[in-house]
Structures are given as structure tokens and as C-alpha cells.
Design a binder for these strands. Structure first.
Length: 109
DNA sequence: GAGGTGACGACCC
DNA sequence: TGGGTCGCCACCT
């Protein structure tokens, strides 16, 4: 928000995701008014792992509820973090995704 | 300085 | 209904 960069805005919104919930690239992009820039959201999250303060990038998955960036976390770290927060994962996909889905456009608004 | 890539999503055919 | 292509902006080579 303070930073006009779309990149930083993604990190800000991602940080607002409550534990036990998951969000999507499209939801964050839509909240920022750039749903077309979903690729940028994923790119921002990639850097979010190396940025401070720590961003719960593991709570962000793709539109299918699939842990797209699991490989970037290093093995099953992403899945482990989600399970630790109460999010059930099966086949690299979030179970009850529709229920756990956290939409900033609605929840955060 | 320019070109290509990238945790995706939506639109078009 | 399904497959293919374009778009978006920042970072890396």
C-alpha cells in the first residue's frame, strides 16, 4: 500500500491471510485490481520467502487449490506448514478448499 | 540496454 | 466443452 509497487502490495495482502486459511493468486490480484497480473502475484510470493518480515506465502495457492510453489519451499515444507495450521492437504491440493478459501475482496474489504 | 523468464489466470477459437 | 494463446510487471542473464 505505502509502496506503489504491485510487487510489494501482494506481500502486504498475503501477510493479512489468517492462519488456517488459504488464498489464491487471482483473489489477491483481483483485490489489487489486476487479476490479469496473476503471474506477478506468484513471482512476488517467490521473493516473499526471502523477504522480511516473513510472509505466509505457504497460505497462497493457485486457483485449483494446488500447492504450486511447494517445490520452492523445499520439499514438503509448504504442505507441512499448512497441515500444522489445520489445513488438510491431499495430493498437493488443499482439501475443503472452497471452505478454507480466504477472499480479500470479501473478507478484508 | 534489450530480451527472456516466471508460485497463473482469463479470454479466444 | 476443451485446448491453445495472450497478458501482466518485475527480476535475471
Amino acid at each position: 500500500m505505502q509502496d506503489p509497487n504491485f510487487f510489494t502490495s501482494v506481500l502486504e495482502v498475503t501477510r493479512l491471510i489468517p492462519a488456517g486459511r488459504v488464498s489464491t493468486f487471482g483473489a489477491i490480484g483481483a483485490y489489487l485490481g489486476a487479476k490479469r497480473s496473476s503471474r506477478m502475484v506468484g513471482y512476488a510470493l517467490k521473493a516473499a520467502i526471502h523477504v522480511t518480515p516473513p510472509v505466509p506465502a505457504h497460505r497462497v495457492v493457485n486457483r485449483q487449490g494446488l500447492l504450486s510453489g511447494k517445490h520452492h519451499f523445499g520439499g514438503d515444507v509448504m504442505q507441512n506448514l499448512l497441515e500444522k495450521e489445520g489445513v488438510e492437504i491431499e495430493n498437493n491440493q488443499v482439501k475443503n478448499f472452497d471452505q478454507l478459501f480466504w477472499d480479500p475482496t470479501k473478507e478484508l474489504l
